[in-house]
């Protein structure tokens, strides 16, 4: 019996079909019916750089009717400082995602729509800048209680739920590729750690072809009390996760101020631009 159940579970994952309704899933369905309200906050700082190459934006969040119909999108893009045009590309990426959200209607599902938009944006940026510049991109889309995200690069999406912090997206950095090699026994963990290019991006907007875009297959159901942080690596790369978790306690606007002050107080000599958007599920 045990083996049969396990077999069914594996098959259902392989086929990517939903597992039969268990108690937990039923509870999720119930939770989805109680609609959440959201509040928002944002922070941005130039750090120790000469220019601000991060860009961000929320869709219209003031019109309740509009939110009910279309949902909410929040976007962060971090222009790559190592290449030219970082600032222009990050701003264009945010504008493009917000405009695409307003127009809607690409693909049948939200996932397809988000992926479609990202591939289109990448094609556009690649043809315009010819690999002379790039940007990371992370967008979260919330419709009713469902969370979807799409991410290219090393920006981060964190969820704070019941005193625990989870990173929901996968970062496209060379270190992750190296870690895979460590698991396969091709290199040692020291070699991976000491690699000079471990922070280099393996995927970014503006690349010739995107081979890997992080996008959730099933909607993630948000619960009352959840807090989301969408941020550039100026936050996720300079604070410990324990520090982020601690700073995410309390009122959402205070959280934003706290993160900003915490990073500023560290006075990191190479502090990157940093940007964070917060969404609180009431």
């Amino acid at each position: 019996m045990g083996i049969k159940k396990a077999y069914e579970a594996v098959i259902s994952i392989l086929r990517k079909t939903p597992a039969p309704l268990t108690e937990e899933r039923e509870q999720n369905v119930q939770e989805r019916e109680e609609k959440l309200k959201f509040s928002f906050g944002n922070l941005q700082h130039i750090g120790k750089r000469e220019t601000q190459q991060d860009a961000f934006g929320f869709s219209n969040t003031t019109d309740k009717e509009y939110i009910m119909q279309h949902g909410i999108i929040a976007v962060v893009a971090d222009g790559m400082g190592g290449l030219a045009y970082g600032k222009e590309i990050s701003e264009e990426a945010v504008r493009y995602m917000l405009a695409g959200f307003r127009e809607g209607g690409r693909g049948s599902s939200i996932r397809e729509q988000l992926l479609g938009q990202v591939y289109e944006l990448n094609g556009y940026i690649h043809s315009k800048y010819q690999m002379q510049g790039g940007s990371t991109l992370i967008a979260v889309y919330i419709k009713e209680n469902n969370l979807y995200w799409v991410s290219v690069g090393d920006s981060a999406l964190y969820l704070k739920r019941e005193n625990r912090l989870y990173q929901l997206n996968k970062e496209h950095i060379h270190y992750n590729t190296l870690c895979q090699k460590v698991f396969l026994g091709e290199i040692s963990s020291n070699e991976a750690w000491e690699n000079e290019d471990k922070h280099a991006l393996t995927e970014y907007i503006g690349k010739d072809t995107l081979t890997e875009v992080d996008c959730n297959i099933w909607p993630f159901v948000l619960k009352q009390g959840d807090k989301l942080l969408v941020c550039s690596d100026g936050i996720s790369g300079y604070l410990l996760e324990s520090e982020i978790a601690k700073a995410m306690e309390g009122d959402i606007r205070m959280c934003c101020q706290e993160i900003e002050q915490l990073i500023v107080s560290k006075q990191h000599p190479y502090q990157d631009n940093f940007t964070g958007l917060m969404i609180y599920c009431e």
Partner: peptide, 9 residues
């Protein structure tokens, strides 16, 4: 571009 943001360096 955050030039006049609060607490900007």
């Amino acid at each position: 571009g955050g030039e006049s943001g609060v607490g900007v360096t």
